[in-house]
Amino acid sequence: MTTTTVAARRAGWAFVAPALTLMVLILLLPIAGAALLSFTDYSLGGSAPAWVGLENYEKILTQSRYRAMLEATLTYVLTVTPLSIGLGLGAALLIHSLRWGGAFYKTVFFLPAMATLMAMSIVWSFALHPTLGVVNATLGSFCGTGWLHQWGWFDAACRNGFPLWLGDRSYAIWTVCFVGVWQGFGFNMVLYLAGLTSVPRELYNAAEMDGARTAWDRFRLVTWPMLGPTTVFVVTITLIRSFQVFDIVEGFYEQGAGPSRSAYVILFAMYEKGIRENLIGIGAAIAMIFLACVVITSLVQQRILEKKAHYA
């Protein structure tokens, strides 16, 4: 037809060409590269790499160091995901039902999502410091409060000292989880608040007419089902972000990943093996496992959303 459409067609390719080139060079080829590397014993500046087949993956499944990695990662993901979603939803419901002051809490709870996580992890490690830290000092000041001593853990801590949150292997990963929840739940709260404002008022009236008397009934029959799509999304994004935990461990520990590798999370393992120790083959295998976790999470989300869309 006219020259403009020809020009537009030519422009189309010209405009996507830079993006397409970068996409292939920076995203797609490296994926293929990582997959290939994971079957080799490649190291930077080393001798010619040899094909080792599944050896790297076998190591990950059998060696105790990687057992620690899987354990720490799963502990973190399975703790932080439900807690930060539960707290995010709880905070959103409370704030949404407030008559005044909701904006203040919303601001405060969202602050950690903005702040540099590396900086805040270092601050937390200072706040949790056994002698200088404000946390143990505050806990200690409650010693002698009678009813708290009913709590066995607290009673024992008052007599033997409060735990080394970062240095004790039975607490380390949980402390990392705590900071993860601290950082992440405000983000989920904001998403849930957006979901809550889109629930039509009339539904509550209708539910009440149908005999939903208590707040729990209203939540169970109206709010929760209406938040379904939000929840699917929140769960996915929280899972993916949890697999990516790295800064907290680096901020907490100078070297290594906590006492007896108790906070040896997957990205830290990948960084330690692939970059620091230049064992790129094994690092790449860890990266592929990480990638699989993230991609599977995303695909499951899409499947659920598609199914939902069918009867919605």
Binding site: M23, I26, L27, L29, P30, L37, Q244, I275, A287, V295
Partner: peptide, 21 residues
């Protein structure tokens, strides 16, 4: 379609090949 596919890729997964390059 390629853009949508690439949305799935977390940058951490490709850190090592990029670093080598």
């Amino acid at each position: 379609g390629l853009v949508l596919f690439c949305l799935l890729i977390p940058v951490h997964a490709i850190a090592l090949p990029l670093y080598i390059a």
